[in-house]
């Protein structure tokens, strides 16, 4: 066993082995490509699902808060309270209801995204000039058409800013999901720490940051495409 173990290490010097523990190792990325791709895919799926969940719940909540100003304080207060609960504590508190599943992570992260997004929607609606809304009403816009054709598009820049914050922080927080074994790249980081395997945890950490950056860019581009008038005005 010692012979077999020593021979390949001597034959092909690698940057990870029992003796060498480099921080960065291209060989590792090549050898474990499948694992890395699987973890990244899971990470992306959890992040996107959580942000979409947050978005889906934040929109009606924001509409409700606007309609009933007294409810706004309650909604903001409760969501701020939930936001202060650390992720590593929120996931266990969901486990009795959703078990050790990806759902636990998605719901937990959705709660954090929701907090940021409700504020984003409310600030966004507030940023729509009153006279614009007034002229739309004067032109005969009904509530629904006013919302989707005037208020929502004009609120988009502020809303997207909140969406970017929510998305980038969700990517980072997904790693904590490793507590229930659904942490995407966080699972690789946890494994790297357990085995003292530097290349593994650094690769996963770098991929997390890259993923956050890429999603951020996607949102910026999407906003540009969705609000052509903003660019025209800037010129």
């Amino acid at each position: 066993m010692t012979l077999l173990g020593a021979a390949p290490a001597a034959a092909e010097p690698s940057c990870y082995s029992a003796l060498v523990n480099e921080w960065w190792c291209a060989q590792y990325v090549e050898d474990r490509r499948d694992d890395i791709v699987a973890a990244t895919t899971e990470h992306l799926q959890i992040t996107v699902a959580a942000v979409l969940l947050g978005l889906l719940i934040a929109f009606p909540l924001a509409l409700l808060a606007r309609r009933l100003p007294r409810l706004e304080t309650t909604i903001l207060g409760v969501s701020t309270g939930l936001y202060t609960v650390p992720s590593l504590a929120l996931f266990p508190l969901l486990v009795p209801f959703t078990g050790l599943t990806a759902t636990t992570v998605v719901i937990g992260l959705g709660v954090y995204a929701l907090t940021i997004l409700v504020r984003g929607f409310l600030d966004g609606f507030r940023s729509v000039p009153d006279d614009v809304v007034e002229s739309a009403v004067g032109l005969g816009y009904g509530t629904t058409r006013l919302l989707f054709k005037v208020q929502l598009p004009l609120a988009l820049p502020v809303l997207v800013a909140a969406l970017r914050v929510a998305t980038v922080s969700t990517v980072a927080l997904t790693t904590v999901g490793t507590l229930v074994s659904y942490g995407g790249l966080g699972d690789l980081i946890a494994h790297g720490v357990q085995r003292n395997f530097r290349a593994e945890l650094v690769t996963a950490a770098v991929l997390c940051v890259v993923l956050a950056l890429l999603l951020d860019i996607v949102l910026v581009v999407a906003q540009r495409l969705l609000t052509p008038w903003a660019r025209a005005g800037a010129r």
């Binding site: 980038v168 990517v171 790693t175 980081i189 720490v193 945890l201 950490a205 997390c208 940051v209 956050a212």
Partner: peptide, 18 residues
């Protein structure tokens, strides 16, 4: 702030401990 948000706390802790 933007940089702080993008770096997972878990990842930084992992690097420091290793």
């Amino acid at each position: 702030s933007n940089i702080g948000r993008a770096i997972p706390t878990f990842a930084l802790l992992a690097v420091l401990v290793t």
